[in-house]
Simulated assay, not measured.
Amino acid sequence: MDRHFTLIVGSVLGASEYVADAIAEALRARGYKVTILTQPDMDDIEADSTWFICTSTHGAGDLPDNIQPFAAQLEDEDLSDIEYFVVGLGDSSYDTYCHGAIAMETLMNKGGAKLMADPLHIDVLHHPIPEDRAVEWLEPILDTLD
């Protein structure tokens, strides 16, 4: 399997990193090459990799500080060669539920990237261990890639 995945993490308190680690473990178990970027930068992403954007939402619907510079890099970028997945973490008691993930998806789509599956928005009120929900969502998707 020569598919390579780059996990692009936006995290404030670490939950998105745990989710990314669980996704990476599931991908590696299938024999895929995985890179995790917690300080993502376009220059650090292999050209042929499939992106997994895994981000929480901070403040009033904002992206976490660590992924904001990366999001700015995506503005007006041609992303038509990129295939990607989105996993968002949020708390549905806020009206900005998963707005970080929605913002990243909007940027990716604006650049012409191809979304490979419906985005996963994990409500931490209902899934206190979000990484379990992410792997549960991922497994059937991986069956279609093999």
Rank of each mutant, 00 (worst) to 15 (best):
T57Q: 11
G31R: 10
L74K: 07
A113Q: 02
S16M: 02
A29D: 15
P130F: 13
R30L: 02
A26S: 15
E46F: 12
Y94Q: 07
H121T: 08
I82T: 14
L79W: 01
F5A: 12
A20R: 02
D95E: 14
K33F: 01
E17L: 15
I67K: 05
D43F: 00
D44K: 07
P40M: 13
A103P: 00
G31Q: 13
L37G: 13
T6K: 12
H4I: 05
T38C: 09
H4C: 02
A24K: 10
G14D: 09
T50F: 04
D48I: 03
V12G: 08
E139C: 00
R28K: 15
M104H: 04
E77K: 13
C54W: 09
T6G: 06
D132C: 00
D95P: 07
E75M: 00
M104R: 00
V34F: 04
H127M: 00
Y18L: 15
S11D: 09
T106V: 00
T35Y: 07
P64M: 12
A20K: 06
D91T: 13
D95Q: 12
D81F: 02
I141S: 08
A47Q: 12
K110R: 12
I36L: 11
G10M: 05
T35V: 10
M104W: 02
P128L: 10
D65V: 03
H121W: 11
H126K: 13
T57G: 09
D21P: 00
H99D: 15
T57A: 11
K114F: 02
G61A: 05
V9M: 05
V124T: 12
L7T: 10
S49F: 09
I36K: 14
G61D: 01
A117D: 12
A20D: 10
L7H: 05
G59W: 07
I67E: 09
L79S: 07
